[in-house]
Amino acid sequence: MSDVVPAPTTAVPAPAPETNAVEEPLDLVRLSLDERIYVKLRGDRELRGKLHAYDGHLNMVLGDVEETITVVDINEETYEEVIRTVKRNSEMLFVRGDGVILVSPPSRA
């Protein structure tokens, strides 16, 4: 594996002090870094996992993820709708932001 030279510190503008203030919606996501969050996605999918990274598109990397997919089967004889959930786990998952409907931070009660 190659060594990547770290960026010279002068190339990075001095970051503003990190605050806990929520001024724009994404600040709520920032405050959830390193916490377990809930994500609802298009296609009846939900994720629960630890937030390791996000960007302005709501692309995310989640760790220890449990995915829940809700599937509606229609019984061929009775035409009844049978709702079934499928669960899957992955240790590390990149999620593309265009499928994200909502993000909910951990309970702050």
């Binding site: 390791h52 990397v61 992955s90 240790e91 590390m92 998952l93 990149f94």
Partner: peptide, 13 residues
Amino acid sequence: VRYVQLPAQAVDT
């Protein structure tokens, strides 16, 4: 792309 599953040991969280 919907997801990319990654090897956890390759990610410095």
